[in-house]
């Protein structure tokens, strides 16, 4: 299940309720709005999404993860619109029988989201300016979210 929404994201527990007692390892990644980027003070973020492609591509990423790391259950959600500091922009939850698969699937899904989910981040700075952020994952190795 992949969600894209402008409302605050569900908690990891709500996103992946674990009635399945076969899963002993659960790994969550939550990406939150940070107050700085490359030395500039950030006051808010705005995410623009191509909704139709993001929903389709998000679902494809989860399907690929399920094949690659089987047996694993993995869900993810991404937010769009304007977010304040500390709010969750993305949540990934992976559950498996053992921790290795859960860690690997969670890591793979967040990396795939950052590589190919059609979502763009615009930072609003303390000095009143704003700018689209170049993808940090390949171009200059900026740290996550």
């Amino acid at each position: 299940m992949f969600l894209l929404q402008s409302e605050p994201l569900p908690s990891p527990e709500d996103l992946l309720p674990l009635a399945d007692h076969a899963c002993g390892g659960v790994v969550t990644f939550e990406g939150r709005v940070r107050d700085h980027h490359e030395g500039r003070a950030v006051t808010a973020l705005e995410y623009e999404a191509y909704e139709a492609l993001a929903l389709a591509e998000g679902a494809r990423i989860l399907e690929e993860a399920a094949e690659r790391f089987s047996p694993v259950r993995v869900v993810a959600a991404h937010r769009h619109g304007r977010l304040g500091l500390g709010e969750a922009a993305v949540v990934v939850v992976a559950a498996s029988a053992h921790r290795q698969e859960a860690f690997a699937a969670c890591r793979w899904v967040i990396d795939a989201i950052k590589d190919r989910l059609p979502v763009w981040k615009r930072e609003h700075y303390a000095d009143g300016t704003r700018a689209w952020v170049a993808c940090g994952c390949h171009h200059h190795g900026t740290e996550a979210p």
């Binding site: 492609l53 950052k114 989910l117 979502v119 996550a144």
Partner: peptide
């Protein structure tokens, strides 16, 4: 067709 040219993405 609906065509979109996708700039480098920056989600997450």
């Amino acid at each position: 067709d609906e065509v979109a040219f996708i700039p480098p993405v920056s989600g997450g």
